[in-house]
Design a protein around this nucleic acid. Structure first.
Lengths: 204, 204
DNA sequence: CGCTAGATTGACTGGTCAGTCAATCGCCCT
DNA sequence: AGGGCGATTGACTGACCAGTCAATCTAGCG
């Protein structure tokens, strides 16, 4: 009774999801477009009907999720809660994203965020926007006198993301146990240790 | 009057150094073997006289420097100095390596250490060995009661390297100012903030 | 019914490059 | 002088793959 334009099976979506699996399994460079098509159960040419290029597929995967992270970060930043909880919220969002779709996060981290040469270069602006929110949170914390003034907020932002990416990499490659308890433990540990490192010491 | 076998110009070395420049400029995947040969001022085929493959060139670049880091880490670990100084020594070694040959460090970080798919996978064991030294330092610190016992040493090790890699990436891509003062400041900041985050709080 | 337009197919093309190899060079030794 | 051998050369081959395109299919519509 409703939308007449939407096919019973959305092949476009099928292609995107197949791409996640194949990119996660073989890496972007090692996947042929035909691999994506096969995995999606569609003809080779259909990939080019829906996407301009192999790169465009990757870009859509990244942008779709990264924009969620940016939105969540902005929302967190605006809220009237302690800096620490904002950072915890961001760390939590990323880790939840991993819990929710590990393959997609694997692809994003490996092929974009840490791939400073290829997609990392293309998407630098969006990536930096995420860093900037963290830097702003830290800067606010310094202005309120919570955090030591000597540390550069931009530096902390890079640190924060560097640590989280490394963590996810550890899970992705089985260097560290990847259970739900570990996820929560890791999240607490990053934020707690980072904040302890940043906080001004008492009166002494 | 001396070594007869060594040519006046060591072409093998020239190829390695050309490779550093070209890999740094274009990235491993985007460099053709002919680019390396041209940059070295040498015929295409000579690259294959000295190296089994393009990959072998990269591997030699990585292994040569990484083994220095491992040796330095081990030496630092054995010395009878505070944990904090050991960590500072490792951070310092890496940052000095960057100061000494930024292009080589750029290549190692981007193409190996952070390239978990390609060379990162191949060299995982060596990379982990570097992490392990940091983990051992932290574990010792915990045993001595300096550091909080709740944090997982392996986790700290990943964190430490994640942060430093991110820093170097920031310099490499011009996201952060890369001057000698910045290098020293960054080194102090990483180690100081990390240790403050790890240390046990006074009596409370 | 036929018509149109988007969906779908897969064979084919063009360009790229890693790695091979046969030929030549230059140095040293006898 | 001339033989031997590693160093050096660069044209060539074989494989691979992103992207194109003309053909076919399907569904709504008047």
């Amino acid at each position: 009774m409703t939308e007449a334009r939407v096919p019973a099976v959305d092949k476009r979506r099928a292609i995107l999801e197949a791409a996640i699996r194949v990119f996660a399994r073989q890496g972007y460079h090692a996947t042929r477009v035909s691999d994506i098509a096969d995995e999606a159960g569609v003809a080779y040419g259909l990939v080019y009907h829906y996407f301009r290029s192999k790169e465009a597929v990757m870009t859509e995967l990244f942008t779709e999720r990264w924009s969620l992270l940016l939105a969540a970060s902005d929302a967190l930043y605006e809220r009237d809660i302690p800096a620490r909880e904002k950072l915890d919220g961001i760390a939590g969002f990323i880790i939840d994203s991993y819990k929710h779709d590990p393959e997609l996060m694997k692809v994003i981290i490996i092929e974009v965020t840490r791939a400073a040469n290829s997609f990392g270069a293309t998407h630098l602006p969006e990536i930096r926007r995420a860093y900037d929110v963290v830097a702003k949170i830290v800067a606010d914390g310094q202005r309120e006198g919570l955090y030591r003034a000597e540390v550069d907020p931009d530096f902390v932002a890079m640190w924060f993301y560097g640590a989280i990416e490394q963590l996810l990499s550890g899970w992705v490659f089985g260097l560290m146990p990847a259970t739900d308890e570990e996820f929560d433990r890791a999240r607490v540990m990053v934020v707690e240790t980072l904040c302890l490192g940043l906080e001004r010491r008492g009166p002494g």
